[in-house]
Amino acid sequence: MSNSEDFLICNACGTQYGTTSDLTACKICDDPRQYVPPSGQSWTTLGSLKAGDFENQFVADDGDSKITFLSTRPKFAIGQRAILLQTPSGNVLWDLITLIDEETVDFIHSIGGLKAIVISHPHYYSTHLEWAKRFNCPVYLAEEDKEWICRDEDPDNVRRFITRETETILPGVTAIKAGGHFPGSLLLHWENKLLIADTVMATPSGLYFKDRPTGTNSYSFMWSYPNMIPLSPDEIWPIWKSIKPFEFDTTHGAFHGLTIRDKDAKKRMLDSMQIQVRRSGHSKHGILEEAF
């Protein structure tokens, strides 16, 4: 029986496949939302990552000590961060990084372990079976995106597929199915914070909030971020409908430096949606009638 640390991992997206045999393509990277780098498709393993120069860093959020950002250095694959929330009912890990090593396991256990993992979309499925097994916790994925799972087996029965528009992960922690980037793309809401992953992306102009002129953009909404393919208005509007019932003044994105803190964050998100819809030539779309 193969050791899962020898299973192949795509160097471009960090997804682990359930095989040690040679692979010629990664279905995640061959999809138009992602890409194969100019150097071509290449592979590694979790064992190789652990034996190499990679390590995970743990950085507390400047605005809330109950939030910790996990990232791998030097950058590996897409380079996203995972976000650990310390809630009164237990810890939740939002999104994943590929590398899981003993230092990471020890750190998370030192602050209470994990009650659940929630992954926003298939680009961050990475090594989710490894994480769930080490922490003996479920991992929540959207039902609509099952086709992108690259390890078919689930021997520990850890996967939980979200079928409803919202799912309570723990008291006060809610997964919101927004769609767009992927059919099942998720957001996570907790304590007036919205964790947006790649479902919504904070833009450079969104990081400045003092004396902002009317009509300034804060967020973008894309089908593919690396290939710069925007969502249509009919895909953007359901994102707004999904978050409309929730209040938030902070958004945390998938990468370092993409946190926005502003009492008007929710209004700025709607403003940004309306800017993108108007600039795509849709002057009478229903989302333009939405008001904060």
Results as ranks from 00 to 15, higher is better:
M1D: 13
M1P: 13
S2N: 13
E5D: 13
E5F: 01
D6K: 00
L8P: 00
C10D: 03
A12C: 12
T15S: 14
T15R: 10
Q16G: 05
G18H: 02
G18Y: 00
T20L: 01
S21K: 15
D22T: 13
D22Y: 15
L23N: 04
T24K: 14
A25C: 14
C26I: 06
I28S: 04
D30E: 13
D30I: 09
R33M: 04
R33N: 03
Q34G: 15
Q34C: 13
Q41S: 09
S42D: 08
S42K: 08
T45C: 00
S48L: 12
K50R: 12
N56H: 08
N56K: 11
Q57G: 15
Q57Y: 14
V59A: 15
V59Y: 12
A60Y: 11
D62A: 15
K66M: 13
T68A: 05
T68K: 07
F69P: 02
L70M: 08
S71N: 14
A77V: 01
I78N: 05
G79V: 06
R81G: 08
R81N: 12
I83S: 11
L85V: 06
S89G: 09
W94G: 04
W94V: 09
I97Y: 03
V105R: 10
I108Q: 02
S110V: 06
S110E: 07
G112Q: 06
G112V: 04
G112Y: 05
A116E: 09
A116W: 11
I117L: 04
I117M: 05
V118M: 08
V118E: 03
V118N: 04
I119G: 02
I119D: 00
H121V: 14
Y124Q: 15
T127E: 07
K133M: 14
K133E: 09
R134S: 06
F135N: 05
Y140C: 07
E143Y: 10
D145N: 06
D145H: 06
R151L: 10
R151I: 10
R151A: 12
D152M: 15
D156Y: 15
V158G: 09
V158W: 06
F161Q: 08
T163N: 10
R164I: 12
E167K: 13
T168G: 08
I169N: 01
P171W: 11
T174G: 06
I176S: 01
I176N: 03
H181R: 11
P183N: 09
P183W: 09
L187A: 07
W190G: 04
L194Y: 02
P204C: 05
P204I: 06
S205W: 01
F209W: 15
D211R: 10
T214R: 15
N217P: 10
S220E: 02
F221M: 02
W223Q: 09
P226I: 11
P226N: 05
N227D: 01
P230Y: 00
L231Y: 01
P233W: 02
D234Q: 10
E235W: 14
W240I: 04
S242E: 06
D249T: 15
T250M: 12
G253F: 01
G253S: 00
G253Y: 01
M269K: 03
M273L: 05
M273W: 01
G281M: 00
G281W: 00
S283T: 15
K284E: 10
L288A: 03
E289S: 12
